[in-house]
Write a protein that binds this DNA or RNA. Structure first.
Lengths: 226, 226
DNA sequence: TTTCTATAAATTGTCAACAATTTACTGCCG
DNA sequence: CGGCAGTAAATTGTTGACAATTTATAGAAA
């Protein structure tokens, strides 16, 4: 028995992050302290700390006296996220490709099967989460925990971005055998190819976004001559 | 009159960060809530929030019931910091070199003069802070605020690393005209050269570190056969 | 009906008291 | 003198009440 373990702020953070990753928490969603308190059975202090940490990661936005809402990255921020991912993730991947063990490859292949399984069962939420986790898994192989943390933040933000600007909902991204091809390249020890595939993979995802004016007041200002 | 503005957690964070950057706050220093409360004239709540944010940035370490101490990056972490800096900072610098305006160059040159002035006045603390800020300034020119934040964290951590493992205290690092040469390369629009100088600059700093066993229990375990 | 205002409700921000834990100290025994 | 309880002090963790602010509601006037 897990000793009636009570949740701490890290647990709350991870829970919220995971929901964001699965796109079950849409950008703009209001997060009230009270609701989270009752959901997790923790005090306001804990929720408050979780909010502070999530703000730091750009996952939620905290406004004075107004509470927390799930972040809505602007198109400009979205561009920066992809730019950062390409730089970071390629470097990490190329480094990983030089140090992987056969066990690591096996672990990656196992993950690919999980992804396929999620699709087979049409468990979209799980699949979305798994595709995100794949990139984090790759990052971990680089052995650089610091860069891994950075990338993790970026992956979560990517999920928000796709939720906001993704064309046909969740399904179309991360399609094809890109992930499998990356693993193959790593297994072959071809760091450069792995990096190239990754970058085109990200470019493809970014290319599927559509930033047309949907809502918000910014658009109103743009429409009129202000 | 600035309306008797009271400090918030961001102010406290920045103050602590700046002290770390100037190496006036040594790794391992205990930070009690009470002392910071009286120093900044804020409540414990604010200090506590600041601690949480600083923990996220690896600037302090927060232990349950034991309070906060300034972080002491391990040699392994130090290696990761430099690795991350080379990846991130080179990418940002090369991007910056393509977009800089003459105003930006002027601003950089101005900064170089400040650095020289600090040396002339033997104001070491100010000089250390300026050399750190130089790298942040470069990063800002990339136009990617996200990567800029990442790098900022890394710069602060670098300051801790140098304080811990730097050979002759503070002075020898970031010497020579490396900064000036980087600015020259940028001004000439030579992104590749700028990147190369930067990497060798960082490599040089890293090379001056000495990770010999100084204290800590890890060394004891290594000494005996455990 | 719409709009504006005043009031009420709900939500967030702050603070102080109390509980839990760690750290420092004193005195005792060897 | 050095080590070891046991107690006192100090520091951190948590909770709850209250203040400040925002949001929702109801009613009156146009």
């Amino acid at each position: 028995m897990p000793k009636d373990a009570t949740f701490n702020e890290e647990d709350v953070c991870n829970a919220i992050r995971d929901r964001v990753l699965e796109q079950r928490l849409a950008p703009g969603t209001k997060l009230t302290e009270e609701s989270l308190c009752s959901i997790f059975g923790v005090g306001r202090t804990t929720v408050r700390r979780a909010f502070l940490l999530l703000t730091r990661d750009n996952i939620i936005q905290l406004q004075k006296n107004k509470g927390a809402v799930v972040a809505s990255p602007s198109p400009e921020e979205a561009k920066q996220v992809f730019e950062a991912r390409m730089v970071l993730e390629r470097a990490m991947l190329e480094k990983a490709a030089q140090n992987v063990s056969t066990d690591d490859i096996a672990r990656l292949r196992e993950h690919l099967e999980e992804e396929a399984d999620a699709i087979a069962q049409t468990d979209i939420a799980r699949w979305i989460r798994l595709t995100g986790k794949f990139h984090i898994l790759l990052a971990e192989l680089s052995g650089n925990a610091l860069m891994c943390n950075f990338l993790e933040q970026l992956v979560f933000q990517t999920s928000l971005i796709i939720a906001l600007y993704g064309r046909s909902g969740a399904a179309p991204n991360c399609k094809g055998g890109d992930h499998a091809r990356i693993v193959d390249a790593i297994a072959a020890g071809d760091a450069t190819t792995a990096g190239t595939i990754l970058v085109s993979h990200l470019t493809s995802i970014e290319g599927q976004l559509v930033f047309e004016a949907r809502n918000s007041e910014q658009d109103l200002h743009a429409i009129f001559g202000t």
